[in-house]
Design a protein around this nucleic acid. Sequence first.
RNA 1: GCGCUUGUAGCUCAGUUGGAUAGAGCAACGGACUUCUAAUCCGUAGGUCGCGGGUUCGAAUCCUGCCAAGCGCGCCA
Length: 559
Amino acid sequence: MKKDIAAVIREMLEESIGKVACERGVSLQEKPQVDIERARRDGQGDWATNVAMQWAKTFREKPVVIAKEIVSRLPENPLIDKVEVAGPGFINFFLSGSWMSGIIGQILEKKENYGRVDMGRGRKVQVEFVSANPTGPLHVGHGRGAAVGDICARILAFAGWNVEREYYINDAGLQMEILGRSTQARYFEVCGCPEKAPFPEDGYKGDYIYGLARDILTAEGERFLDKPLEETLLFFTGYAGEVILDGIKKDLSDFDVAFDVWFSEKSLYDGVRVPKMIETLKKNGFAFDAEGATWFKATAFSDDKDRVLIRSNGVPTYFASDIAYHKDKYDRGFAMVIDVWGADHHGYIPRMKAAVQALGRNEADLQILLIQFVNLLRGGQQVSMSTRSGEFVTLREVIDEVGVSATRYFFAMRRSDSHLDFDLDLAKSASTDNPVFYVQYAHARIHSIFREAASRGVAVPDPSRADLSLLREPEETALIKRLSAFTEEVEKAAGDLAPHRIVYYAYDLAGDFHSFYNSHRVLGVEPGIESARLLLSEASRIVLANALSLLGISAPEQM
RNA sequence: GCGCUUGUAGCUCAGUUGGAUAGAGCAACGGACUUCUAAUCCGUAGGUCGCGGGUUCGAAUCCUGCCAAGCGCGCCA
């Protein structure tokens, strides 16, 4: 495999620093730590390092002097045009035309695999996300979690992880019972005798509950009316939960979000898993009995109080089932588990991380991605939401209104832990303001070039025959450098679980292409340049498509 | 009261494992289509990086105090 340019420069520097140290009679205890990074602005080369400043102390010399010594001892390399010392002692590397030609060559060769890295080394990772209670349809808040979780999964897979997506169905407990009672009450209401089954105080007031009730009436008739409520509750709960879950599955699938596993909370209460989990904790010394209850010693880690596992009435807490659930995840062989949670659960993080460690795992084996709330705006006004009151905008409505691609883009465009303003009017506007179209348009434009080329009888050139060193214009080199940065962006996005990095990257790449397109013609110029620009366009198209594919956004050929 | 997150241009936000002159988009203003899609491009203007201290060659970034906003602090789920 070809070494990336950063590694090449690093080796050159290590070699040179070794020489400097030797000549100065300083013995290096260890291999010098060399950090290199992309230069931030024009005139500072393509890559830069601050090693001279870091080594100045060791060598008892000014950084600038050290920098010059290092530079003068650097080995020659055809990928690098020149090296400069600048500012307080930065060493700037300017890449050569042959390096840039190499990048285009790599992209054209690797195609949809360009940008893949192997951070995961094939290890198993689970991303658990959405996991909304099946008590109502998904709303926009869930949508953000769905988009972010799904895109993280795509990025991790692209970064060499073996990814599995999971949805945890909260199908046990009080919320389901309330759902059942709400449905039951609406059924009686629809049948004309609301007084027989009063609507629960904290019931679900959404219109969809009436829909369920009417469906039950149609399918089952009035046969539940004269039976005791407690006897028929199970039916209502089961029916409502199942229909709602089916709706959720449909919504997600229409949102291009696919799950490998739908994990039922009920399955944890098999009388075995929770006791076994507690046994493990006790064995590890992190569970104890007190005040008639069983406790988890969360304070042994970074939580601020111990937590109850089994209440004094013998019923396990939700937390206990959650630990059992996470134990099950690790038992399934995941090297890393990622939970995507709503930001309102942040208080739960310390105890969950503590529990994972008490099970004998490293803290880093559980990554929790918090998703902040979504502010939905329509006509500049905030749309208020609450599942309980039934006042909410569903994910389905948003998808229907603005489309899957725009919805995914808007959900992923901000850092997950910052609040998100989702402007419905902007998202569906087919205007210059809409960033989704801006990116897609760049892709469509490239296709349009190739359509025109075909109609003119211009064939797509063979990369090995073309002279890519003809690409010397500033807009061309800027574009090539952007293309070369894709791999690093994938690494950063995967390492930080930060989908928005890919969004920004795609946007910037589209911008670089638009600039190039506006200042230079691809077709009808001198044949050598035409060939080189066609290949540059094709490389841009590939990387745009790869980035959009990570985001789950369509890459249209025509707009 | 304690804890978590956030605070960067008029607005919405990047940048935060310490680096050089803090970047985009929108809004404002001025330009570019007889030529591959103007859903585009180019330019101008806009900043005490919430406030104060500290750490150092260097701080939006690290530490600390304060201010503001959101969220959370149950033998609920």
